[in-house]
Amino acid sequence: MEIRKETDGTVLRFTLSGRLDTLSAPELEKELNDPLIRTQELVFDMAGVDYISSAGLRIFLCTQKAVSGSGSMKLIRVNPDVKEIFDITGFSGIMDIEQ
């Protein structure tokens, strides 16, 4: 799992690549554990993510809950295969997901 983090004005952009699974999820979780995240405009570039498991989903759900009301969160360039997982779990309804 590769995580690249860059700030672009008010936007905090994470560019992810690789597998977001049980093993790699804690890595991303650590990055997002910062309380300051809550007020940011978060953008996750998912173009490089070809696999996501429930561990990854859980991180996005927790993050979405954290930013809700104070900041924002958006997933862009989501791989169709991964998007399907978001759809199955109903995440598409509560998150801003772009393909």
Partner: peptide, 24 residues
């Protein structure tokens, strides 16, 4: 199974894995 139609605030963060498997 987690209720996938609940709004964000009420969504449980657990139980997703098994739910996913059943769906897959």
């Amino acid at each position: 199974d987690p209720d996938i139609d609940l709004p964000l605030e009420q969504r449980e963060t657990g139980g997703l894995g098994i739910y996913l498997v059943k769906e897959i």
